[in-house]
């Protein structure tokens, strides 16, 4: 099987697994989510017509009145139409609307913070590996210590020190609420200002992993023959470091992006909660607290698909930076 086919099979399987997991979880676990949802819906003045009940049952299980296969097919059909059900916590909004409103916040915050953390960690790691025996060595234990700190704890300490204490940053939120969301300079500025501290939390907690990995790879790569050749060629130090050593040392970091992304996404959910950030992580917790099962499922699915998408992107990128994978017929 060719490399590309294998990757494609992997992504399809992962997508199917995520969708199916989403279908199976509410059916396997104890509790009766449909009844709870209907009660909630009633409280909020929603319709209790049989159609609403059927919709939820498709999503969460009918309690055995329909066969598993029938339920599964109906569920897949709804998914294909983009119908994720109605949210009770944001009634009468559809789940898809709630997600559409909060997803951009998370994508921008987590995306930018992860990119920043990756570049910073890989850059510092490359220099730390290249200049071993200097003060840069102390970066490794320092940043590793930071990665062992729980995200939310660091976030709260930062808020206490920089927001409450020094008043440099806002306490919470994604933007100044007196502004109207839109593409105005004022609003974007406010969003950036509000996003700085959450982003700083994510960067501080995740930079250590990138740095350590890159530094260790750099040390290994530096004893490769092609680095020796580059030095013998009389190339400048910076050229040998960047074009020869770092260029090769970065490959495992890029390949390992998948593993790290999962951690970052997990951490950022809790971070969003601490900052009451209007992203998808806060919405997920809000959904859990309100037993808004439809929203919970929708968000889990979207997060998984987003992580898969990011991995696919990195896969394509990897093919560009390492020619060997393009021609390889098999890959482990």
């Amino acid at each position: 099987m060719s490399h590309h086919l294998r990757r494609l099979a992997f992504y399809l399987t992962a997508l199917w697994a995520a969708v199916t997991l989403n279908f199976v979880i509410p059916r396997m676990l104890p509790g009766n989510p449909v009844d709870i949802l209907m009660a909630k819906l009633q409280q909020r003045g929603g319709s209790v017509d049989p159609a609403a009940r059927t919709a939820y049952e498709t999503l969460l299980g009918t309690g055995g009145r329909e066969s598993f296969a029938e339920e599964y097919l109906a569920y897949l059909g709804n998914l294909l139409r983009g119908d994720l059900g109605v949210s009770v916590s944001a009634f009468p909004a559809e789940v898809s609307e709630v997600i559409a409103g909060s997803l951009p916040w998370t994508v921008v915050l987590v995306g930018l913070a992860t990119l920043l953390s990756f570049l910073l960690g890989v850059g510092l790691g490359a220099v730390a590996g290249w200049r071993r025996g200097t003060w840069l060595d102390s970066l490794v234990p320092a940043t590793t210590m930071l990665s062992a700190v729980p995200y939310f704890w660091l976030a709260l300490i930062l808020v206490a020190a920089l927001s409450s204490g020094l008043g440099w940053f806002p306490l919470n939120g994604g933007y100044d609420v007196v502004l109207d969301p839109g593409w105005s300079a004022e609003f974007i500025g406010s969003a950036l200002y509000h996003g700085t501290l959450p982003a700083l939390t994510i960067v501080l907690s995740s930079v250590g992993g990138w740095l350590l990995g890159m530094r260790n790879m750099m040390v290994s790569v530096m004893s490769e023959d092609y680095v020796l050749t580059a030095r013998a060629k009389g190339l400048t130090d910076s050229r040998v470091m960047i074009r020869y050593a770092a260029r090769n040392a970065v490959l495992p970091s890029v390949a390992g992006f998948a593993i790290s992304l999962g951690f970052v996404v997990s951490g950022s959910i809790v971070t969003e909660q601490v900052f009451s950030y209007p992203g998808i992580g806060s919405k997920l917790l809000q959904a859990v607290q309100n037993n808004d099962y439809a929203l919970m499922q929708g968000i889990f699915l979207v997060i998984t698909v987003a992580v898969l998408g990011a991995n696919l992107l990195v896969d394509v990128l990897y093919g560009l930076i390492d020619a060997r994978t393009r021609d390889r017929s098999t890959v482990s």
Binding site: T13, S266, I269, T304, V307, L308
Partner: peptide, 9 residues
């Protein structure tokens, strides 16, 4: 597959 399914969510 399990690896890419985000854990905490």
């Amino acid at each position: 597959v399990v690896l890419v399914i985000p854990g905490l969510p």
